Amino acid sequence: MQKKTLAVALAALFALPAVAQAEVSIYGFMAASVDSAKATGNGDEAKNYKRTTRVNSDNSRIGFKGSEDLGNGLKAVWQIENSLAKYDNAGGDTWAGRNSFVGLSDATFGTLLLGRYDSAYKRLTDTGQDLMVNTTAGNQGATQIFSRGEARYTNSISYTTQSWAGLVAGVSFAADEDGSASKDRWSVAAQYTLEGLKLGLGYDQQKDSYTYAAPKPQEVAARNSFGTTENLEKSKFYKLSASYKIADTLLIAGYEWAQGDTKVGSDLKQDDWTIGVQQNFGKGSVRLSYGKLGKLDGVDNADDYKASQWILGGTYNLSKMTQVYAYATKINNNASQNVNFQNNQITSQKVTIKGESVSVLTRGNDPQAIGAGLRVNF
């Protein structure tokens, strides 16, 4: 009798996790690549990044999400997403450092979320321009060639509509919780889908964006999308993107215009754009894109802040979950620019900004890499 009771108790105990996680989905991917990378060209050999073989984790992640049906088309939703991007070098990542939120979703009125979440500008203007996303050869982000106004908002409120005949709209607000300054940030965007066509349009604004007064603006790498230490009162970004899929061919294009309103001196203006094509062949694909960052109007030697990037990549699906990929990319930075890789960035010197030591890519260095990797989705 005791043995039977013990067996029942143990069975119930081991069944508990399955019951507790019945409404929880686990998702993500593990990826790794090997590449050969370097960054040279600034004229100072001591600040070059010599060709190096690297093993990369390519933005790997794991997430947990779930929902509860509250009736009448309303659901409570939640998500916790974590980066695994440093598993290749025994590093650590912040728990819930990626999109992590709680909110309500209604079948008619849309979704309202609180927490850490990609801005409406980032989500809804993404119509497929990043053909080698999550690899060294990606091209989107605040310190890359294209979509420099995108961000993942913390302390944010986000609302997204349901689809109205292919049209989805959204708005995001990031609250400034530091009483010493007003750095509230918000964005509004929309995406329209009609068969193989996708269009994205967005606007992003941040108040009191970086107020560093360092004498050498080229010493600040990723602190400002404009790549300068001018005293900015407000940063504004406008973006238009499009993609069109016909049969096995995907065509992409995007244009972004940025303005920085300064407290002293001339306002800053800079644009960027990208074009590309992806051709699928059964389980494989070949991908090619080119992007350019324009001159920085409002500073001396505006052309010195230009940059460009070409990307050639390919993928092959071994199964529905497993993919191999390869890429080659090169970024050309003018003398005062230091656009870096999307992932697995290169740094070639350390600078001190307001007493903080920051690792940066030396201005004028041209990062380039060639590599191959494996991704398993789950």
Score class of each variant (00 low, 15 high):
Ser225Arg: 14
Thr160Arg: 11
Ala214Ser: 14
Gly179Leu: 13
Ala221Glu: 14
Ala190Gln: 10
Lys198Ser: 15
Leu199Gly: 08
Asp176Thr: 01
Gly265Val: 00
Val277Gly: 08
Ser158Gly: 03
Asp176Ala: 09
Phe173Leu: 15
Gly265Met: 05
Ser225Lys: 11
Gln279Asp: 07
Ser187Gln: 04
Trp257Arg: 12
Gln205Pro: 11
Glu230Cys: 03
Thr161Met: 05
Ala165Asn: 14
Lys183Gly: 13
Asp272Met: 05
Ser163Arg: 08
Gly265Lys: 10
Asn224Asp: 14
Ile157Arg: 01
Glu230Asn: 14
Gln162Tyr: 02
Ile157Ala: 08
Asp267Lys: 04
Ala181Lys: 14
Leu197Gly: 08
Gly265Asp: 00
Val277Arg: 00
Gln162Ala: 10
Gly254Asn: 02
Phe173Ile: 09
Lys236Asn: 04
Gly265Ile: 03
Asp272Cys: 08
Glu195Tyr: 11
Gly196Leu: 10
Glu256Gln: 10
Gly166Val: 07
Lys234Glu: 01
Asp261Met: 03
Gly196Asn: 07
Ala213Cys: 07
Gln270Leu: 06
Asn231Cys: 01
Phe237Ala: 14
Phe237Asn: 09
Ala181His: 09
Ser187His: 07
Thr228Pro: 00
Asp178Phe: 05
Val277Thr: 10
Gly282Asn: 14
Leu250Met: 09
Ala181Asp: 12
Ile246Ala: 09
Asp272Ser: 15
Ala247Cys: 03
Lys183Cys: 00
Gln278Lys: 13
Ile246Cys: 00
Glu233Ser: 11
Lys236Trp: 03
Glu219Thr: 15
Ala214Met: 13
Glu233Phe: 02
Asp267Trp: 00
Asp178Trp: 06
Gln279Ile: 06
Asp176Phe: 00
Leu251Asn: 04
Asp248Val: 06
Val188Phe: 13
Asp267Ile: 00
Leu251Met: 11
Gly254Leu: 03
